[in-house]
Design a protein around this nucleic acid. Structure first.
Length: 593
RNA sequence: GGUUCCGUAGCUCAGUUGGAUAGAGCAACAGCCUUCUAAGCUGUGGGUCGAGCGUUCGAACCGCUCCGGAAUCACCA
């Protein structure tokens, strides 16, 4: 039985009976905590039909509803707001339905297929905090869309080619002395990142020398021998020179091994991995098509452009004069290929807001080429940068927060906390380590996912990560507490699930059932808005509300057995829903902590 | 300059798509463990929702103008 449906039907028939077929959109919302009631009808929009004051209209409808709808037990009117109360038995029924629903919060299959691309790293350096936000967002949105009944394809497009990789390769060749992950004990991505930094150091040195000998900075940047050599390396790579290609494969292999460790630690994965080295030539045929259709034009030097000035944008390059492709060429190609191969209903790109312009242009070009049905189903899930107290992260200035370091630090802090509180004294080392990993990562993930992706967010390594208050660990802790109760109930041989005897619910219990009943709508809203933060806020509210209840009421110690069993069942459903909601954020919850 | 986005408590952030007296957490202060896990609970203080005008029964939310900030506007990806 659909709750919204029940209410809106009842209200509609009330309005019909009282005022005739008035066609005003109904506004029914949850009653705010500070007022009595469960749901509130806003009557202002109905005043034209009723031709009465807000108060009189609300009272009239309220009386009709109480008389005609058995589940509605009472009402009160404050200004234009009609607060309706549903009776306790109604909520008891809802609760029983939730408990019986094995797929609670999981929507029926929609048959829609959605591809979501996230992560998309460069292979010249390890992942950092910005990538963490990207990965967590992408993974969580994928889970949320699955819960909404969609087929989801998680895709990673690895940027494995280009001048930046050549920089690392060249520096390794020049200064590496044959160092490998095995010989150095370094994680592969970190090793390659080290040589990227090394390149920059020598590059800067050479620029200094050249400017000292009279060149302008611009000339020096172009003429620095190490840069010229890197560019030469890229040309040799494109020509598949065996030596360069072999080194490229070796070093990328190191990086992938490193990334796998980080992805695993973060708990994210992919269904499809695309490599730009295999897709970068796509899109040239689209350029040809655009030229034929007259959407694009060619300049004297042979380069191909589109003029978007009429759309308030600029001219955009699509193909270089020498015929090589640029970012936009590739992206047009991959978009085309993905839609063709997978019959996608939607394509989501989790990419930083620095590329807002790029996606604006991408969609516009697809539309002009006549692929509006694809263009309209591309969504750029744009997220803001993560800033440190000192400001933006800059790889070259060493102010990045490394992903592996951060994860390790989070887990270490969680472990310290557990040890200090003596929470896991009886546990095996393995269990203590698992819990520390769950809690440390839970803190990090929740911290990042609770904020609106669009916003630039601030991360203070010293203060941002808390384990108290509105945090992941708070929610995990609530789960662990409930699991502890359930373990004790089982140890005591309490068969709490069989007691179907209905008992009257306390207001706090009704509040919990109401919150539980909101879960499916929460999942839906999160899916429609691609917004993990909605799920996070929900999990927090549920945990908070349970903690208050737990504090005020005994569960196992309740003397009335029917009431006790109901309370255990209620706690069980709260734990299950917390687990489910947190899973949508990619956060695991422990049995004890 | 063009485009897009952001501005809510000292700090970090919510705010259910236009509803009631704008909410949490942190930090500060004051309480609650011989009782199911105190990573918890309760209380106090803290606001010109950047500013102004407009739309309407009603605006943090919609529109316009301004102020402040971010990103972007490459033959990089």
């Amino acid at each position: 039985m659909n709750l919204d449906q029940l209410l809106s039907d009842a209200v509609k028939s009330a309005i019909n009976a009282l005022y005739g077929g008035a066609e005003a959109p109904l506004q029914i919302q949850k009653t705010r905590k500070e007022f009595e009631g469960d749901y509130t009808l806003v009557v202002f929009p109905l005043l034209k039909a009723s031709r009465k004051s807000p108060e009189a209209t609300a009272s009239e409808i309220g009386e009709y509803l109480v008389a005609h709808t058995p589940q509605i037990s009472g009402f009160n009117v404050i200004k234009g707001f009609l607060n309706l109360s549903l009776d306790s038995a109604f909520w008891a029924e809802r609760f029983a339905e939730i408990a019986a629903d094995e797929r609670f919060g999981q929507a029926a299959p929609t048959g829609r297929t959605i591809m979501i691309e996230y992560s998309s790293p460069n292979t010249n350096k390890p992942l950092h905090l910005g990538h963490i936000r990207n990965n967590l967002l992408g993974y969580s949105v994928a889970r949320i869309l699955q819960a909404n009944g969609h087929n989801v394809i998680k895709a990673n497009l690895v940027n494995d080619r280009g001048i930046h990789i050549c920089k690392s390769m060249l520096a390794w060749k020049l200064y590496g002395g044959g160092e490998t992950p095995a010989s150095s004990g370094m994680k592969g991505d970190h090793l390659v990142g080290k040589y990227y930094v090394e390149f920059d150091k020598h590059y800067k040195e050479q620029i200094r020398e050249l400017t000292a000998s009279g060149q302008s900075e611009e000339e020096a940047k172009k003429n620095a021998p190490i840069m010229r050599e890197a560019q030469e390396m890229l040309r040799r790579w494109e020509a598949k020179d065996p030596e360069v290609y072999g080194l490229w494969e070796t070093m990328n292999g190191w990086v992938y091994e490193g990334f796998d460790v980080t992805y695993k630690a973060l708990g994210v994965d992919f269904d499809k991995v695309y490599y730009e080295s295999q897709t970068y030539l796509l899109g040239k045929s689209l350029v040809e098509e655009g030229l034929q259709k007259g959407v694009f034009f060619r300049k004297e030097d042979g380069s191909v452009w589109i003029d978007l000035e009429a759309d308030g944008l600029d001219q955009k390059l699509l193909l270089r004069g020498d015929g090589t492709s640029v970012y936009m060429t590739q992206d047009l190609g991959t978009a085309f290929r993905r839609f063709e191969e997978n019959r996608l209903d939607e394509m989501i790109y989790v990419v930083g807001n620095e590329q807002n312009y790029h996606f604006q242009v991408l969609k516009l070009i697809l539309k002009k080429l006549g692929y509006a049905d694809w263009s309209d189903h591309i969504f750029h899930l744009s997220y803001g940068m993560v800033e440190l107290p000192e400001g933006k992260m800059k790889s070259r200035e060493g102010t990045v927060v490394d992903a592996d370091d951060l994860i390790a630090a989070m887990i270490a802090t969680a472990r310290e906390m557990s040890d200090e509180l003596g929470k896991l004294d009886g546990c095996s080392e393995q269990e203590a380590a698992d819990v520390a990993a769950m809690v440390g990562l839970g803190a990090l993930k929740y911290f990042i996912l609770k904020v609106d992706p669009r916003k630039t967010m601030l991360f203070d390594p010293r203060e941002s990560i808390d384990f108290n208050g509105n945090t992941g660990p708070f929610i995990q802790y609530t789960h662990a507490r409930i699991r502890s109760i359930l373990r004790k109930a089982e140890e005591a041989g309490i068969d709490f699930r069989s007691g179907a005897e209905s008992v009257a619910l306390l207001p706090e219990e009704i509040a919990l059932v109401k919150t539980l009943a909101d879960y499916p709508a929460t999942v839906r809203a999160a899916g429609e808005n691609f917004a993990p933060s909605i799920v996070g806020a929900y999990a927090y509210e549920l945990a908070k509300s349970f903690n208050g209840y737990y504090h005020d009421h005994s569960i196992l110690r309740e003397e009335n057995v029917a009431v006790r069993d109901m309370r255990i069942r209620l706690a069980e459903q709260v734990a299950r829903t917390i687990r489910s909601a947190m899973a949508l954020l990619g956060i695991e919850v422990p049995e004890r902590m």
